[in-house]
Amino acid sequence: MMNTWIYARNLVVGLWIVFKRTFTKPVTVQYPEEQPYLPPRWRGRIVLTRDPDGEERCVACYLCSAACPVDCISLQAADNPEAHERRYPAFFRINFSRCIYCGMCEEACPTNAIQLIPDFEQSEYARRNLVYEKEDLLISGTGKYHDYNFYRMAGVRTRDKDKGQGEHELPPVDVKSLMP
């Protein structure tokens, strides 16, 4: 007899809790109309960025591919016909089906070229569509780091920056001068 009352009481309590919920605000986020807030450092899709002067930042140094724990980045430095052209990747490929979004590549990159941005919307039906080439990765902006232009810091000569024109550089030494 006692058990029946306990059973009935529990049933009513349960139903009451459920009923109360009719009037509370749902926590459902109506994605994709509502987007979640993701901080800027949230590790999502990988992009290749450009420097403030509009040239691609990637100098094909291979540090990102070396740092990647799953070896999903491969690239090849292009052979520049003139030695003072910028170095850039002839191809740059990321296999996103392997990428674990750890951000080691961004940490390794010395030019702030490769960055992870808060975008997770990469789902595909076919795995082969998760292989991104340079055209898929290169964006037109500077990404999260707005000011850095590697070639202004480096010593090499490029189209836009001659020897001695970088930050903290003296004009090139004149070897043939007799002055002390």
Partner: peptide, 15 residues
């Protein structure tokens, strides 16, 4: 040991 790019070297040809 640091040989890299293994999973994307030929991924444009085949997965």
């Amino acid at each position: 040991e640091r040989c890299s790019g293994r999973t994307s070297l030929i991924s444009h040809l085949t997965m």
